[in-house]
């Protein structure tokens, strides 16, 4: 075994940075349910709980809440079950607001409107996708973030075809009472992290992963991003976080399959 892997000094991959960036979305959440729809979301969520957000509650992907750190893609891994969470009860949690979901986005626009329903005209779509799923309810009830594995101007678009998840402009138009539980916290992509901490909640570049230039991001984004003067580099994983990723949470490297290189 090489020293590189045993002492944690192997340089982190882009996928490692993405996992950290996803985990960072949950920082400060405390004792709520972190729901991860997708592999990278689950890896990041589990990493957050295994390190700086130990009170997060997470499902095992089926109907149980697992209290321990279970590895991705190992169905027989020992599980410490701390609760029963069939779909029915998941809606109780959504409506209570004590949840932060990280979903995917086939399209997302500058105000965080998201589309997972279909591409093209709704009446007869060019490509039928999943359907709006829980996105309409999630986004007006509790914190929502998005993960995009392949940043491109086909995903980051000026206007999404079907608003499934509600963005800031739509929420503002609803009014104060109706939008009081709405928060799109962050969008994480393979190129960087993005938030809505701007006066009109337009999407802002929050950080770039190492090796990514702002020109590259602008080129791959179909709308005008808010670009601060100083853009920090995305946070690097610590040696302990790399160990957790490689040995505990994602030993089969699902994250590397999602974000190669």
């Amino acid at each position: 075994m090489s020293d590189d892997t045993t002492n944690g000094s192997a340089s982190p991959t882009r996928a490692d940075y993405c996992a950290i960036a996803v985990a960072e979305c949950f920082r400060g959440d405390g004792e709520i349910m972190a729901n991860a729809i997708g592999n990278m979301q689950a890896i990041g969520g589990r990493l957050a709980r295994a390190s700086f957000e130990p009170d997060l509650v997470m499902t095992d992907g089926v109907a149980s809440l697992a209290a321990n750190d279970i590895p991705m893609g190992v169905p027989d891994a020992p599980k410490v079950v701390e609760g029963w969470m069939p779909y029915r009860n998941l809606f109780d949690v959504v409506w209570s607001g004590r949840r932060h979901v990280m979903m995917g986005a086939t399209q997302v626009d500058r105000f965080g409107n998201q589309n997972i329903a279909c591409i093209g005209d709704y009446a007869q779509p060019k490509v039928q996708l999943l359907g709006v799923r829980g996105a309409p309810g999630n986004t007006v009830n509790h914190v929502t973030s998005y993960w995009v594995p392949k940043h491109s101007n086909r995903v980051f678009v000026e206007t999404v075809d079907v608003v499934s998840g509600v963005g800031y402009d739509r929420a503002a138009a609803l009014g104060e009472a109706e939008s009081r539980f709405h928060e799109i916290r962050r969008v994480v992509s393979n190129l960087g992290t993005f938030d809505f901490d701007t006066p009109d909640h337009a999407m802002r570049v929050r950080s770039l992963h190492p090796g990514v230039t702002i020109d590259e991001v602008v080129e791959a984004t179909g709308f005008e991003l808010v670009i601060p003067d100083d853009i920090p580099e995305s946070r690097a994983p610590s040696a302990e976080e790399l160990r957790l990723l490689n040995e505990v949470i994602d030993p089969k490297n699902f994250r590397g399959n999602e974000v190669p290189g």
Partner: peptide, 8 residues
């Protein structure tokens, strides 16, 4: 609340 503001 589900549906408010969305294209549904």
């Amino acid at each position: 609340r589900a549906g408010m503001g969305s294209d549904v």
